[in-house]
């Protein structure tokens, strides 16, 4: 079904023909080989209307780019939504918001029911941002939803658009390996993200985000799955040189990255083995396994989940709500 979508569009002449307003060819996609060449193009920022709705869209974009500032009550690390959803949620192959918006409501096995788009957003705060989910209907979610809705302007709903999510990656030729991953990391990633994976700042702002440690995503996050991480990395990293690692290197370095210490899974049952069994019982998660003599997720060496800075969490409502 997924593969059929572009073919159907081609057959009906939508890509080249009239009425193709929502499809365009990215000029440089050849350099990021796994990313589909033809995909939906979101409207430019200059198309945000000067209306109360437009204000909401802009607020959503601010939150997306700087959640620790504009949604501080819900954020527990130094990441930004745009660190993973590149070009502030516009870039095909980096889980763009236009691709996501039209795909909800949808059933998710992660929680076993049909999720609205807002509910999907809640998960991002709880896991990727190691924070706290805003309540449904919270202005933070309304702003983010407005921004995603704006980016998806003119896209068909219910279609798995080419460029949504991360490009699928074949299995590695040989089983992924932590040691080889460490080497790929040292050669291709450490200059930006640091040997210690903790990232780098300039002028008091994080430029290269933390890949692990207390300021990164927690054990419940999508990027903690080796498969997701390998797909993201192969298409998008090293920054500006996406598509340059081999399939094997992408799996190896993803395995290395996802075998490091990071904040606890907020669904932690109190027991690492039980938590693994319940939420991580698959080959893509290293949670609960022993690496370098330590058990990943062991509370003794694992930063806590949901660490909102005290100043921010007592500051209700969040700054963005009062703008």
């Amino acid at each position: 079904m997924k593969g059929a979508v572009p073919t159907v569009l081609l057959a009906t002449g939508l890509i080249v023909g009239g009425g193709a307003a929502w499809l365009a060819t990215s000029h440089h996609s050849a350099s990021r080989s796994p990313v589909p060449a033809e995909h939906f193009m979101p409207p430019p920022d200059s198309a945000i209307p000067k209306t109360p709705f437009g204000d909401e869209v802009r607020r959503g974009e601010h939150i997306f780019r700087e959640p620790a500032i504009y949604a501080s009550a819900f954020v527990g690390n130094q990441l930004r939504c745009s660190n993973c959803h590149l070009s502030a949620g516009r870039l095909a192959g980096a889980s763009p918001m236009w691709g996501a918006y039209v795909a909800y409501p949808a059933y998710r096995s992660k929680n076993g029911h049909v999720n609205s788009f807002e509910e999907r957003l809640q998960g991002c705060f709880r896991f990727s941002m190691n924070g706290k989910a805003p309540k449904l209907g919270d202005p933070t979610l309304v702003s983010l939803e407005s921004y995603a809705f704006f980016l998806a302007h003119g896209a068909p709903t219910g279609v798995d658009l080419p460029g949504r999510g991360f490009p699928k990656l074949p299995k590695p030729p040989v089983a992924a390996d932590y040691q080889r991953g460490a080497q790929v990391y040292a050669e291709n990633c450490a200059s930006c993200h640091g040997r210690d994976g903790l990232g780098q700042s300039s002028g008091g702002r994080v430029v290269f985000p933390a890949l692990w440690g207390a300021q990164s995503f927690n054990w419940g996050a999508g990027m903690g799955s080796i498969k997701n991480a390998a797909e993201f990395i192969r298409a998008n990293m090293p920054l500006g040189l996406g598509g340059s690692l081999s399939v094997q290197q992408a799996w190896d370095v993803a395995t290395y990255m996802d075998s490091q210490v990071r904040p606890q899974d907020p669904r932690f049952t109190g027991d690492v083995a039980a938590t693994r069994k319940k939420f991580h019982n698959n080959a893509n998660s290293m949670y609960g396994l022993t690496v370098n003599g330590g058990v990943l997720g062991d509370p003794a060496m694992t930063p806590p989940a949901g660490t909102i800075p005290v100043a921010a969490s007592s500051a209700a409502p969040a700054p963005v709500q009062s703008e």
Partner: peptide, 21 residues
């Protein structure tokens, strides 16, 4: 430019162009 798949300069040189380490 997302259209040209081009990272911004600030993503590697910092927002104020101060460089990174």
């Amino acid at each position: 430019s997302a259209d040209a798949d081009m990272p911004s300069c600030s993503q590697c040189h910092g927002v104020s162009g101060l460089g990174v380490g």
